[in-house]
């Protein structure tokens, strides 16, 4: 399948090997950058506040 890469434009990639009619595989996002979702996961999964997340970042615990 063809996908739109933020840095490299249209590139070709392998699709998905299993077809499902009601819950098909989907390409939602490309590979994440290291730590791209640290804040988000800590917030919505673990319940950390924005302040706490900033503190952890400045302490070098997360990035």
């Amino acid at each position: 399948m063809e996908l739109d890469h933020p840095s490299f434009g249209k590139v070709k990639s392998l699709g998905f090997p299993i077809f499902m009619s009601d819950s098909p595989a989907r390409l939602q996002s490309l590979a994440p950058c290291k730590g791209q979702h640290s804040g988000q996961v800590l917030h919505d999964l673990l319940g950390y506040s924005e302040d706490a997340i900033n503190q952890l970042t400045s302490d070098g615990v997360i990035a």
Binding site: R26, L27, Q28, S29, L30, A31, P32, C33, K34, G35, Q36, H37, S38, Q40, V41, L42, V61, I62, A63
Partner: peptide, 8 residues
Amino acid sequence: RNKQSVAL
């Protein structure tokens, strides 16, 4: 693809 990343 389709993954999230947490760095700690």
